[in-house]
Design a protein around this nucleic acid. Structure first.
Length: 230
DNA sequence: AACCTAAGCAACCGCGTCGGG
DNA sequence: CCCCGACGCGGTTGCTTAGGT
């Protein structure tokens, strides 16, 4: 790959993509000296990389406990759930997903959930389709729980949410779209219960045009609603 | 087949925090 | 108490790949 080109900083540090040989040297270094003291790598391992670059390469790519492959639906749901709680604190979220890095989660979030402006209707369609798949997953996961839980407060929670939503201005710019775990779970729960799905669909739709600065407060309120479900 | 665009992802950068001297 | 180096985190960049026209 010619990504970034092959660069050398004025200090003599190499930049850009790592070669297999560099990877091997770094792995050898960590085997011998353990993680940390990254600024020693250049001296002890013969790498022309600064410590920061070495640490990043190790943490995000070379660590043996890293999980390869696609994010599973379960992991996706965890990401959504924790993002609703923690916001963009990717490292905090990553701690709950063994084998996944903050960088990976951040990239995943940005790619799948942080929707950008243009062709917004297309984006909306794609996201709704994704939501549907997610909903199917939740349906499987939670069906049993729902049956056991007595599936009571759904309509009440939806009504409460409608009331909350009415207190906030709606922004017509889909740039501000975001996903809320509470809404997703609520949606999934609604689908599980079936006859109350209409209210939950309203809940979801209400989230499409929220401005970013409302994210926190809305998320908290949704979390409250969500708590009421289970 | 050629071109275009969006998605995916590795890597960089800047900044904040922490601990040792 | 201050300074400085090491480290960690979140945001951003830009190249590659995949899919669509």
């Amino acid at each position: 790959m010619a990504q970034w080109g092959i660069m050398e900083a004025e200090e003599g540090w190499r930049k850009g993509p790592w070669t297999a040989e560099e990877d091997r040297l770094l792995v050898e270094y960590v085997k011998l000296h353990g993680e940390g003291r990254w600024n020693n790598v250049a001296r002890l391992a013969g790498l022309k990389r600064n410590g920061k670059s070495c640490r990043l390469r190790w943490v995000n790519y070379l660590r043996p406990d890293l999980k390869r492959g696609r994010i599973t639906p379960h992991e996706e749901s965890v990401i959504l759930e924790l993002h609703a709680i923690w916001g963009n604190r990717w490292s905090t979220i990553a701690r709950s997903l063994p084998g996944r890095t903050d960088n990976e989660i951040k990239n995943y979030w940005r790619t799948h959930f942080k929707k950008r402006g243009k062709s917004s209707s297309q984006n909306a369609e794609k996201t709704r389709a994704r939501l549907l798949r997610r909903q199917q997953f939740f349906q499987q996961q939670r069906q049993q729980d729902q049956l056991n839980a007595g599936k009571t407060d759904l309509r009440m929670a939806a009504a409460a949410f409608k009331q909350e939503m009415a207190a906030y201005p709606v922004v017509a710019d889909e740039e501000a779209m975001f996903c809320s775990t509470a809404a997703i779970n609520a949606y999934a729960a609604a689908a599980t219960v079936g006859d109350q799905a209409e209210d939950m669909i309203f809940m979801w739709d209400g989230l499409w045009n929220l401005d970013d600065h409302l994210h926190g407060s809305i998320t908290n309120k949704l979390a409250d609603c969500y708590t009421n479900f289970y």
